[in-house]
């Protein structure tokens, strides 16, 4: 399996999560074909860091998030979390490991059980793991609900449908926090929310991250949102990583043509500059039969013959900045040194 390189992986004692050559494939019925959802990506996340995963629908960003949780298990590759190889774990050990990483989903309303009281929903993980006495559990749940801005008394009496979308997302966040995880994977947590509420939830995540010393993986398709919350961003396209960079660098000097496309697609709230032209035509091709070479070549404005035959590897173009492109818009470091 052709990987997209590992030049960007860091050798640090603070690495909390390290993914290597992660491959996730799904069979297509009994046709013998398969969906190449994630095709050999490598990533690492340091303690206390926020990693943003960005890309269009079908680029494999959500599948990557789920594969880290081993839901479902990746086809191949390794996922090391807090020094443990998750792909080898089974049964109780796996369940135990999952308490250390939690997930928040896109649709806040359907990710909460509609029949139960909100307080019970948040308490359930503690009950399952029999953490503390009844009293301690109640105290913990109440303090976390306060923390996310939900009135515990109201949460004790009300069901999810009595809360707004933004409040339901706060409840999901509270539920993800009760087991004191070290890693939270946020899968498009603000895409379904209004801009005003989106800002509230993003601010809340930043506050909680600082207070609980969390590490976040933030998955979204909106680069402006991802840039705001992330320290480091990985841009994905059709199951591969195109570019990895600190988020400010990614915006200031995008090296991959696809990153530029994503940046140009964001609507700017200013009529003077908003006379945009369509940044890119068409949609990503099917991940069942991905194009050979660089997977972005059919839509890339700079594609040459080599892009159609040879897959680019990730290589450095700056401090912590890596790109998988034969003709990046920023000169690669090794060429500049010559």
């Amino acid at each position: 399996m052709a990987g997209t390189g590992k030049a960007h992986l860091r050798d640090s004692p603070d690495v909390l999560l390290r993914i290597e050559d992660l491959v996730v494939e799904f069979p297509v019925g009994r046709t013998g074909l398969k969906v190449n959802a994630v095709s050999g990506i490598s990533l690492d996340v340091l303690k206390g860091e926020t990693l943003g995963l960005v890309g269009e629908s079908g680029c494999g960003k959500s599948t990557t998030g789920r594969a880290i949780m081993q839901l479902p298990r990746p086809t191949s590759g390794s996922v090391q979390f807090e020094g443990t190889e998750l792909t080898q774990l089974t049964g109780d050990a796996m369940r135990e490991a999952r308490t250390r990483m939690q997930m928040i989903f896109q649709d806040p309303i359907s990710s909460l059980n509609p029949r139960r009281k909100v307080r019970q929903i948040v308490m359930e993980p503690l009950n399952i793991w029999k953490r503390g006495t009844d009293d301690e559990r109640a105290k913990k749940v109440d303090s976390i609900l306060e923390e996310v801005g939900i009135d515990p008394v109201r949460a004790g009496e009300s069901q999810p449908h009595q809360f707004s979308g933004g409040q339901c997302q706060r409840i999901s966040i509270a539920r993800s926090l009760v087991l004191d995880p070290s890693l939270i994977i946020c899968d498009e947590p603000v895409s379904a929310l209004d801009v005003s509420v989106q800002a509230q939830v993003l601010n809340l995540l930043e506050d909680l991250k600082a207070e609980y010393g969390l590490t976040l993986i933030f998955i979204a398709h909106d680069l402006a949102v991802v840039k705001n919350i992330s320290d480091r961003v990985a841009v994905m396209y059709l199951g591969k990583i195109c570019e990895v960079a600190p988020s400010d660098v990614l915006y200031e000097s995008p090296a991959h043509h696809y990153t530029s496309v994503l940046l140009n697609s964001i609507p700017v709230p200013d009529p003077e500059v908003a006379v945009t032209k369509t940044a890119i035509e068409g949609e990503p091709p099917s991940p069942v039969l991905p194009p050979p070479g660089c997977r972005f070549n059919p839509r890339c404005p700079a594609a040459q013959d080599i892009c159609r035959s040879e897959e680019p590897q990730l290589r450095p173009v700056g401090e912590g900045h890596f790109v998988a492109c034969h003709f990046p818009t920023v000169t690669p470091v090794e060429l500049a040194a010559r």
């Binding site: 800002a199 705001n228 400010d248």
Partner: peptide, 11 residues
């Protein structure tokens, strides 16, 4: 309330 691309991250 719209996050702006020009702002530094964590603004």
């Amino acid at each position: 309330s719209i996050p702006k691309l020009e702002d530094r991250s964590h603004t």
